[in-house]
């Protein structure tokens, strides 16, 4: 099970990387979100315990580690903020240069 989970997270990260390396800036944005999803899952995996119950005081049994959860919760919101900023930049670039091709934009710069 752990192996499968690790493989899935790794695969998602790889997919994200591949998407980020596309010339189409919209795909790059998609890649960014996939990467941040994978990273959030990875962060959850860094918890000290494998829980069977949610991290509530009144739950019985081994509770899952609350600390990485709080971090990930923050990370999700922050990454959305960051992602909207990235998107705004990409949008600006693509309306200014009338293209969504990052290579073409780079050429225009020079």
């Amino acid at each position: 099970m752990d192996l499968l989970k690790a493989l899935a997270i790794g695969a998602m990260f790889g997919v994200g990387v591949f998407q980020m390396l596309r010339r189409n800036v919209i795909r790059s944005t998609i890649g960014l979100i996939i990467i941040s999803n994978a990273v959030n899952l990875f962060l959850l995996a860094t918890g000290a315990y494998q829980g069977v119950a949610a991290a509530y005081v009144n739950e019985a049994g081994q509770r899952s580690d609350a600390l990485p959860q709080a971090l990930v919760l923050t990370a999700i919101v922050i990454s959305m903020a960051g992602f909207s900023l990235v998107l705004a930049l990409l949008y600006m670039l693509s309306t200014r240069y009338h293209t969504s091709d990052s290579d073409e934009i780079a050429e225009l710069k020079n």
């Binding site: 690790a6 990260f13 990387v17 994978a38 609350a66």
Partner: peptide, 30 residues
């Protein structure tokens, strides 16, 4: 690009596997 993605994914897989298989770990904060 595919190779880069596979390499990065493999690295993350190993990291995650290490994190998952070393549970439970001592924790002070939680």
């Amino acid at each position: 690009d595919g190779l880069i993605a596979v390499a990065a994914g493999a690295a993350i897989t190993i990291l995650t596997l290490v994190a998952l298989t070393s549970r439970p770990r001592p924790s002070i904060v939680t």
